[in-house]
């Protein structure tokens, strides 16, 4: 599984950090997403897919 994030689209809602803190964080100064792990282990797939599905800016893409 590979992940990309679109920093320009990110609206700083923080949902991804709440759902998958192992994979996502936010910059302290403007709340924009930080991708901690672009290729997380398979056991994190449900959380990552959930984070991508609920992102209000649709800024997370997950590739198989």
């Amino acid at each position: 599984m590979e992940i990309t994030v679109d920093e320009d689209a990110c609206c700083g809602a923080g949902q991804c950090v709440m759902i998958a803190p192992e994979v996502f964080d936010q910059r302290d100064d403007d709340g924009v997403v930080i991708l901690l792990d672009p290729a997380p282990p398979p056991e994190l797939r449900p959380a990552v897919e959930n984070a991508a599905a609920v992102c209000p800016a649709a800024a997370i893409s997950v590739f198989p």
């Binding site: 609206c11 700083g12 923080g14 950090v17 709440m18 803190p21 964080d25 936010q26 302290d28 100064d29 403007d30 709340g31 924009v32």
Partner: peptide, 14 residues
């Protein structure tokens, strides 16, 4: 404006 305000409403801060 949004990026300036977002720092106070990140998951970590809240």
């Amino acid at each position: 404006w949004r990026r300036m305000m977002s720092r106070s409403f990140t998951a970590k801060r809240v």
